[in-house]
């Protein structure tokens, strides 16, 4: 019910005479509409978290990377590097 998933903003349009910003957001290729009324500063290309048709938060890339820094500290860096490369290729 509180499921909110991250997707990438593909395009933004303004409706209701400029009052409401709506985005087309791609979730791994599946495009859905989301209201940007709670995230007025969001831009095309941003990753946003969408919940029941409303974008509620921007995903912060720098902070996301920190989750994995801890693993580097405890010495898992080599294995992780392989995976990071795979991730890059996928993107």
């Amino acid at each position: 019910m509180c499921l909110a998933i991250p997707g990438k903003i593909q395009s933004i349009e303004t409706i209701h005479d400029g009052l409401v910003k709506m985005a087309k957001v791609s979730f791994g290729g599946i495009i859905k509409e989301a209201s940007l009324e709670m995230l007025p500063a969001a831009q095309v290309g941003d990753y946003v978290l969408v919940h029941v048709g409303v974008a509620i938060s921007k995903v912060d890339e720098e902070e996301a990377a920190k989750t994995f820094e801890y693993l580097r500290e405890i010495g898992e860096i080599d294995e992780l590097l392989d995976h990071t490369q795979v991730d890059r290729q996928v993107e």
Binding site: Y47, T67, L71, D87
Partner: peptide, 20 residues
């Protein structure tokens, strides 16, 4: 980053379990 697959990665899961 896709902000999904990275957080389901088995190697990372195992490292955290070992640390725990």
């Amino acid at each position: 980053m896709k902000y999904m697959s990275e957080y389901r990665d088995a190697t990372r899961v195992k490292s955290y379990l070992a640390e725990l």
